[in-house]
Design a protein around this nucleic acid. Structure first.
Length: 265
DNA sequence: GCAAAATGTCAAG
DNA sequence: TTGACCTTTTGCA
């Protein structure tokens, strides 16, 4: 359910710093697959936590933990009544709260140079402070691949995943198969701004909600999970704007959903 | 009880 | 383009 796109990682970065920032952290690997790395940072204070796209960096002075949750990874507080299980790759504790990392695609000790190598490959992150549309717009103009495929390319825009891509394209009335370079510049800018706005909503609510306040008919924080999106995984349900059935197809090797009426070819 | 799927990414064919 | 990886949750016998 709560599998991560960029909003998840930024929220996690914030929550982890609020919990552990500034004080020594006890790090262990109950699963055993990260024992060395955990021992390396154990007892050191967490000095900073940053998110870039879907990558999380926990800084212990010049030593960093690089974490990428991948498709199924989770990093969450341990329920107070449940002991650390065998699947916990990394457990962080401060004597009060425990946070547990399971199923990550990446969990590794790295240095600054390695961090730079990772972030250099990423496109602009709409959640970064002061991020601008320029580089994103330039890249779109050069890509003939379908816009839905380009939106998943982390070198073009960092942090977008399969839910957001489908929802953005619905909100802008763009068919997912449209070649990226065919988007007018002003529409590309609008797409960037929409990403920026909706990812921020995602960070705040800690889940993806793309419906408008108007369509929801209530505060976004109270919208039911079944009602928070327009098209993602809603095939054969009526479009919330025009009642046409939602279509499903594959673009860039992943399923994509759209309304053929609201998003004409 | 087991298979399948899941919001991701990379490497091999 | 496909398979592999990692784990949890869901749905079907």
């Amino acid at each position: 359910m709560a599998v991560p796109e960029g909003h998840t990682i930024h929220r996690l970065s914030r929550d982890l710093y609020r919990t552990f920032g500034g004080s020594p952290v006890q790090a262990t690997s109950p699963q055993g697959r990260f024992s060395e790395g955990a021992a390396f940072v154990d007892g050191r204070p967490l000095t900073r936590s940053t998110a870039r796209g879907k990558h999380l960096f926990l800084e212990f002075d010049e030593t960093l933990l690089h974490i990428h949750l991948g498709l199924i990874g989770k990093f969450r507080p341990r329920p107070f009544d449940v002991p650390a299980g065998e699947s916990v790759r990394l457990n962080l504790a401060n004597g009060g709260e425990d946070w547990q990392l399971t199923g990550p695609q990446t969990c590794a000790v790295i240095n600054r140079a390695e961090e730079a190598a990772i972030t250099d490959k990423l496109g602009p992150d709409p959640l970064a402070r002061g991020a601008k549309a320029d580089r994103f717009v330039e890249q779109l103009a050069r890509k003939s691949a379908p816009i839905a495929a380009v939106l998943l390319d982390q070198a073009v825009i960092a942090g977008i995943g399969n839910v957001y891509r489908a929802e953005f394209l619905f909100l802008l009335g763009i068919d997912p198969h449209t070649p990226a370079k065919q988007l007018p510049t002003d529409q590309a800018v609008t797409l960037w701004n929409l990403a920026s706005d909706l990812l921020r909503v995602g960070v705040k609510l800690n889940r993806i909600v793309t419906v408008s306040r108007q369509d929801a008919g209530m505060a976004l924080s109270r919208v039911a999970n079944d009602d928070r999106l327009y098209v993602y995984k809603r095939e054969d349900q009526p479009c919330r704007h025009c009642d046409a059935p939602i279509s499903i197809g594959k673009v860039g090797g992943r399923s994509v959903w759209w309304c053929h009426v609201c998003q004409p070819a």
